[in-house]
């Protein structure tokens, strides 16, 4: 059975997310175009990766989301990365936004993301396919 999220502490920790996730932040694409973070589309990442000489985009499917053992403010997200479906787990703040293909920004706690960053955000769910990066040539 799905477990209910733990109740959050009444004290709100200061946000420690990178500043570029705040609504209105200016992002430069690989071709030099400037866009606000909330206006980014899937194609922006795909086209930027195509231009990049070092980076390529991988599809990372969310396999599992669970609370962190270390803090209720964190979640552990397990991804299946790339064509080889390598298993990679990351521990992130619950409000940390991932970009879901064809959908946009999503986080484990979208209400908190919107509250802290004003970034429009949907709920990250198992099965979502997120954009991640890897190196074009590892050899």
């Amino acid at each position: 059975a799905p477990s209910a999220p733990p109740s959050l502490s009444s004290t709100v920790a200061p946000p420690s997310l990178p500043p570029y996730f705040i609504k209105g932040s200016i992002i430069q694409l690989a071709d030099g175009e400037l866009k606000r973070v909330e206006d980014l589309k899937t194609e922006d990442f795909i086209q930027s990766a195509e231009i990049s000489t070092e980076l390529k985009i991988d599809s990372s499917t969310v396999e599992r989301i669970e609370g962190s053992h270390t803090s209720p403010n964190f979640a552990v997200v397990q991804f299946s990365v790339g064509e080889h479906r390598a298993q990679v787990s990351v521990e992130v703040l619950v409000e940390y936004p991932f970009f879901v293909f064809g959908q946009g920004w999503s986080s484990c706690c979208p209400d908190r993301t919107t509250q802290l960053l004003e970034l429009p955000c949907t709920k990250l769910s198992v099965g979502d396919v997120c954009i991640s990066l890897t190196l074009k040539n590892l050899r």
């Binding site: 932040s25 200016i26 992002i27 430069q28 973070v37 985009i57 990372s60 990351v90 890897t134």
Partner: peptide, 25 residues
């Protein structure tokens, strides 16, 4: 006097995670 501040510009690749499978063979 308030001097105009330049707006920070962030590269696109900062926004998506670098998920690298651990090298296991």
């Amino acid at each position: 006097n308030v001097e105009p501040r330049s707006v920070p510009v962030f590269p696109w690749h900062s926004l998506v995670p670098f998920l690298e499978p651990s090298q296991s063979g």
